[in-house]
Simulated scan of single mutants.
Amino acid sequence: MSHAIAIKTHRRLLLTGAAGGLGTALRPRLKHNCEVLRLSDLADVGAAQAGEEVVQADLANADQVDAMVAGCDAIVHLGGISVEAPFAAILQANIVGAYHLYEAARQHGVKRVVFASSNHVTGFYKQSETIHADHPARPDGFYGLSKAFGEDLARLYFDRHGIETACVRIGSSFPEPKDRRMLATWLSYDDLHRLITACLSTPVLGHSIVFGMSDNAVTWWDNSRARHIGFVPKDSSDVFRDAVYARTSAPDLSDPAAIYQGGAFVKAGPF
């Protein structure tokens, strides 16, 4: 793990979505970034360990979110639905939930948020294109749409209330790439931690969009607009390339999942 790169920037750091896959991976890592790591999720995150607090909260419940944020110095917001889903569910967890989070941050004076956005904000750009943070959103479903809303919400709360946010458009963060698409989108757990550490520790963050990817040779995303954050990935999908090619077939270039950056999300249900 990349504990050596952690910087203890905050006294109490809130991690939402702590029961999820990325929350579970970040839990031991982020404890090195703060004195107290407050873990929250609607699901059970288990007992609090040394240096931890646990606050269960439903993002759709404003009072619970307010209590979850109270006393925290910064927020890493991974909570919500992370896959394509019916709009009613996305609305409550990701759109109403994001509003509740930023309102609580405003009320409690929290001035820095790391918001887990997604590559699905721009999923309808083609895999033959290279885009940067100034390209317009082209969400590939309700999930991507909710993350585009979250980015705009974060900008509003920066412009109106000075709450700095890094909107991290996470690619594919797993122990290793699962397929050929992930050779471009892969983000190692250690690089994810490096990225969050950079977002929490850079002197001036503002409202910034940064693509969450490791140092992959193949990439669709240009992170030049986020150099002020200071994120330097150390891992790369390239070491997995031969194994990925050996176990996967060549893409069908007439398949929308192979044409667009969002992959299978561009044709996922429910519509």
Rank of each mutant, 00 (worst) to 15 (best):
H3E: 02
A4Q: 14
I5S: 12
I7D: 10
R12K: 15
R12Y: 07
T16Y: 06
T16R: 12
L22P: 01
R27P: 03
R27T: 02
P28F: 00
L30G: 02
H32D: 14
N33Y: 13
V36W: 14
S40W: 08
L42C: 13
V45K: 07
E52L: 13
E53M: 10
E53H: 13
Q56D: 06
A57P: 01
L59T: 09
N61A: 13
D63N: 08
Q64W: 05
V69K: 06
A70P: 03
D73A: 09
A74M: 05
L78K: 01
S82H: 06
F87Q: 09
I90W: 06
A93T: 12
I95N: 04
G97C: 09
Y99K: 11
A105E: 09
Q107W: 01
R112W: 12
G123Q: 15
I131E: 04
H132Q: 11
A133Q: 15
A133F: 13
H135F: 15
H135M: 08
R138P: 11
D140M: 13
F142Q: 09
Y143G: 07
L145W: 07
E151N: 09
E151L: 08
R155D: 11
L156Y: 14
Y157C: 09
D159W: 13
I163Q: 10
T165Y: 11
C167R: 04
C167W: 06
C167N: 14
S172P: 00
R180C: 00
R181P: 04
L183M: 11
T185E: 00
W186H: 03
L187H: 00
S188L: 01
C199W: 00
S201M: 05
P203I: 10
M213I: 01
A217R: 08
R227I: 15
G230P: 03
K234N: 04
D238K: 02
D238H: 03
F240N: 02
A246R: 12
A246S: 15
R247F: 00
R247M: 02
T248D: 07
T248E: 08
D255A: 08
P256D: 03
A257P: 06
Y260R: 03
A264H: 08
G269C: 07
P270W: 03
F271W: 03
